[in-house]
Every structure is written in C-alpha cells, then in structure tokens.
Design a protein around this nucleic acid. Structure first.
Lengths: 183, 183
DNA sequence: GCAAAGGTAGAGTGATCGTTCTACTTTTCT
DNA sequence: AGAAAAGTAGAACGATCACTCTACCTTTGC
C-alpha cells in the first residue's frame, strides 16, 4: 500500500506515547504496527528514524488539533491553551512526547532538531495570534509567557492533575493578557 | 569509608544530569564514581536503585539550594523561582532530572514515587511561603500557579534560553501576586 | 500477462548491558 | 593482634536488542 508509511507512523506515535521510548523495543513496535520487520525498516531505517517519524506525526497532529477557535479577542490568543486542556483530558498523560524523547537521547542532533522545530512553531503560534489581536503592539514577552504556561501546564498536569494545572495556567494567562489590556 | 555511599550518590547525580539516563551504562557510572563494580552494587543493588539514589541526592541538594532568602513580602514567595533561575544558570540545562527519569521509566513505581514526593514537596514549599506572607488567606490556587511557573520555567529554559524563561516566569508570578494583593 | 515493487515470516548475528562471582587487599573496631 | 567489614580488579554469564538476511508471496502498472 502507498499509505503504509503513514499507518506505521500513526502506530509508532501511539506506542511511544503510551509506553515511553525506552520500554518499546523495535520488535514491540513492529507488532504494534502489524507489519513485518523488513517493511518497518524499509520505511524507517533505524530506531532513531522511528522516533523521529513518531515526533513528526505528532507535530502535524497537534497543530491540526490547535487550529481554529474564536477569531478575535483574548479568546483567540488563549485558544491553544484551551485545546491543550482538552488534549490532556483525552490522552494518557505522560508529559510532552518531544521533551521525553529529548530527555532520552540528549546526544541525537536529529531528535533535538525536531524538538526545537516543534517548540519554535508553538511559540510562533502564540506570536501570530497576539499579532492578529493586537497588531503592531510589542507583545514578544507576552508570547513567551503564554508558551511557558503551555509547557508548565503539560508537566503540571502529570503531577497535580489536569484540572488543577488547567485552572492555574488559564488564570495566569488571563491575568497576563488583562495586564496588557487585551480583552 | 563510611561516606562511600554519599560519594557515589553525588557522582551518580552528576553523571545522570550531564549525560541523561539511557546513555549511561552501569560500567560508565562505576568509572565515574571511581569504585569497583562490587562496591557500587553493594550500595545500590540495581540500576534502578542507582537512579533512585541520584534522585534522592538531587532532592536534598535542591531544597538546600532553595532555602533562605527574604523573609517577608512577595519576595519571600518568589524566592524559589529566583533560585531556580540561578540554578539554571549554573548547571548544564537538561530539563528536570526527575521528569527525565520518569519519562524513561514510566513503569517503575519506585521511581514514580520519588518523583511525586519531590514535586509534592516543592508545591508545599510555595504553600508554606504563602501562608507565612498571607496567613489565613485562601492561596491554594496561587500556590498551584507558582508551582506551574516553576515547572514551565525549567522546560522553557531548555527551549528558549534561561533569560527569556526567567523573565517570562517572574513576570507572570509577580502579576499573579499583585492581583492577589501580595506585595 | 508479467515484471517490478512492496509485502510477509522469522531465523541469525554481533554487540551491549545488567548482574554475579572469584580471588585478593585494605581498613576499622575491639 | 586479629577477625570482620569493606574495598579493588576484572572475568564470565545470560538476556536483550537493533539490525540483517534468506526465502517466499501479493498487489499493481503498463
């Protein structure tokens, strides 16, 4: 099939998210994707390539997930945080897949590059939304704050539960926007 | 020596922090601590025990690091965030050692317990400081927010640099305290 | 219709790694 | 002084794991 690679990538993302990286051997990944070892290696020629494939798949899926929402006002800017809250309610919460991968392979330049690209894209998402809502305003530090709250919410959800993390992040985010006169 | 265990634990923490968990085999840990394999296993009878030993050592070191600071006002409450900023400036920034360990061994109940204990202790630190500064006030959600900012700052420092993460977290924290009328 | 591309099944390989064991030496305590 | 405790050095073991290879089957495009 032409979409075999896509099917495998979906399953790789699912496997790594639910069980972590270290505990998933190539054989387990193969079984999860229900393909032969040869086919798996044809599409992803090394374990590292499998990890990168899973991360790239998640990157696309997450930005699809964030898209849309209110098109004006503070709600437009806060939308990604709301969607993160939804996300954390839907999936088994094992923290950020990208940071987990980076933690495990701190020496892999290829993995680090994918992680940095994803996070840079996320920070840009906040910058773009702020620019739409408050054109021409100096909102760089606000975008950084919202990005930090996004990261903090992801980690805090594992530790204190999704509800508490969501409320804490949204409260801080609304306060920051109000202080900058964005309503 | 009586303090051999302590010496090894110090070195385990250093090794795991600087090079990650997955890439540090037991032989490398042994060499780093400059002891024999037998002695290493006498004090830490498995690799998992070595990881836990490193985490417990870091737990103690980090709370020593946080101690002290201004004894009144918002500055008393913000002190742990300031110290985290100092910490991130001193060590190679590879994210949170506890979350990295948890990411790598999501199935180890023993590791999860140490991580949860450390983070609960940290959340309590903020609660205690708020209670001292605003006795009797309902500050639970504020403590959660400060905890979230602590976690977010740790991760954001890896991604956007220590300066940006520090400013973003401190800005949000001050705004939250001001909104709660704590100065 | 048939080659080529892409698939399955699964045994084999070489390296690594956590852990144990043997044999010996040094330190510590009474 | 001497026994017990704690240390060194490093070979050996068993398991796992990433990856390769052989042999065969199925779909698809011209």
């Amino acid at each position: 099939m032409r979409d075999t690679r896509q099917r495998i990538a979906t399953e790789l993302e699912r496997s790594f998210s639910s069980l972590g990286f270290a505990e998933q051997g190539v054989e387990a990944l193969r079984a999860g994707a229900d393909v032969s070892l040869r086919t798996l290696y044809k599409h992803f020629p090394s374990r590292e390539a499998m990890i990168i494939g899973a991360l790239e798949h998640r990157d696309a899926a997450y930005f699809d997930w964030l898209a849309g929402g209110p098109s004006a006002g503070a709600a437009h800017v806060l939308h990604p945080l709301v969607r993160l809250g939804d996300w954390l309610g839907e999936v088994a919460n094992t923290g950020c897949l990208f940071l987990n991968a980076w933690a495990e392979y701190p020496d892999s330049a290829a993995i680090a590059a994918v992680v940095r690209a994803h996070k840079a894209r996320l920070a840009d998402e906040f910058r773009l939304r702020l620019e739409r809502v408050a054109p021409g305003r100096e909102t760089g530090h606000l975008a950084e704050t919202l990005f930090l709250l996004h990261e903090g919410m992801t980690q805090a959800a594992r530790l204190q539960g999704r509800e508490i993390a969501y409320e804490a992040a949204m409260h801080a985010a609304r306060a920051a926007l109000t202080a900058a006169d964005i309503h």
